[in-house]
Design a binder for these strands. Sequence first.
RNA 1: UCUUCAGUAGCUCAGUCGGUUAGAGCACCUGACUGUUAAUCAGGGGGUCGUAGGUUCAAGUCCUACCUGAAGAGCCA
Length: 466
Amino acid sequence: MGKLQRIKIVEILASDAFLSEQINVRGWVRTRRGNKHISFIALNDGSTIKNLQIVVDIATFGDDFLKPITTGACVSITGLLVASQGQGQTVELQALEIEIYGTADAETYPLQKKGHSLEFLREIAHLRPRTNTFSAVLRIRHAMAFAIHQYFNEKGFFYLHTPIITGSDAEGAGAMFQVTTLDLNDMPKTPEGKVNYDNDFFGKPTNLTVSGQLEGELGALALGNIYTFGPTFRAENSNTPRHLAEFWMIEPEAAFYDIHDNMDLAEDFLKSLIRYALDHCADDLDFLNSMWDNELIDRLKFVAENDFVRLSYTEGIDILVHSGEKFEFPVSWGVDLQSEHERYLVEKHFKKPVILTDYPKEIKAFYMKQNEDGKTVRAMDVLFPRIGEIIGGSQREENYDRLLDRINELNIPMKDLWWYLETRKFGTAPHAGFGLGFERLLLFVTGMGNIRDVIPFPRTPKNAEF
RNA sequence: UCUUCAGUAGCUCAGUCGGUUAGAGCACCUGACUGUUAAUCAGGGGGUCGUAGGUUCAAGUCCUACCUGAAGAGCCA
């Protein structure tokens, strides 16, 4: 005994292969209860939301030995797997040998058997993965990351690693975190009194990336189809349940795709991921559905099974103008859509995901392909219920002259973008792509209400404790 | 960053019109119970009322500033 290989609880519950066998399990105690003769331990090892019930005969082990086995303690237990005599579980482990790896003093261990508020759990982010909710979210997060790689791999998209430290801020996607090795208390200055970056690590100002898209386009114009999946940083002072300063983004980019191919890809991609979650994370989704959001699974199935609505910005404005709805921000052609407008279209008018296309060029980025009308660009935003914009993308402007004109119109510093422009100078091609915020996807798939609860270590203004 | 709400025991909260010793449930500790399911039952300990000022005979309660958290907005993914 004691030399048995550890079996994960998810495997034990998956079949009856271990019934009547002597096995070893290791994990963390959720609760221990019972009377002076018998003790029941609910053990969780993180492999599944489900616990394994351990039955302990107190006479065999002694009260003093069992006393430190409290909520949060880590134990290794060897025993005999038998059909359960009690209700609530099919099998249970009759303990023959118990080793305590680590105790968790009941007076100071912050996690209790009872539920905690998500706000409190954020303050103990180092321990919250041990709760049912966060272990479920983190398993789903893993499954979605895996499904994303699998989806693109099967479609022939290559995983391209774009840089995390960049020398350009040309995309203008938001405020950036500067990266420097200069001494902030003694910055070298030029004769004009500005910071002299000549002796900084890269010899020029650098920042953490806000998007891998521009580099992704370089990859697509060589490999055909690529995607990125990596960390992204925004130094915006955003305090909302939908924003993080550090988040993960997926950005596919495909040569020879127009905006319609791009929409097809985005819709199929999202539906595939949701279907993957329904097929592979059923236990965790059931838990989240019952604990936090009892419409979650219905909503996921609905999105996976129904077509997204596709309409132009102009048509969307028309619907909003004639809606009879009183909006805080008035609607007219040319204005950027506010949250309330997007929510009206998605949640009230269509009641399903919406893809809006062909926005006015003034409210979209410089690289988007201009339409023949001279007013709009081939942009596409995928709007989801509850979370708003989950995907933003476009067909890119592949014409060198038109792209350069737009860059000059917007006064974007050219010197940072010479390499990007050369893709249009040499062997340019029509292409398109989009960006998906990974945590926004997880908000939708898990039903969690706050983006800080779908990433293990959230980075938000004034918060980088863990 | 703006607006609103909140901060009282380890957690979740109550605390009336400003008035005697600040309460409850859960958690924790002690005890009871021969199969429990967030076990149950009985008892016990536990408080700088976010911080700093101010008003008042008297402040958890009213005022000011600040800190922290949340929701909505902006920005966006």
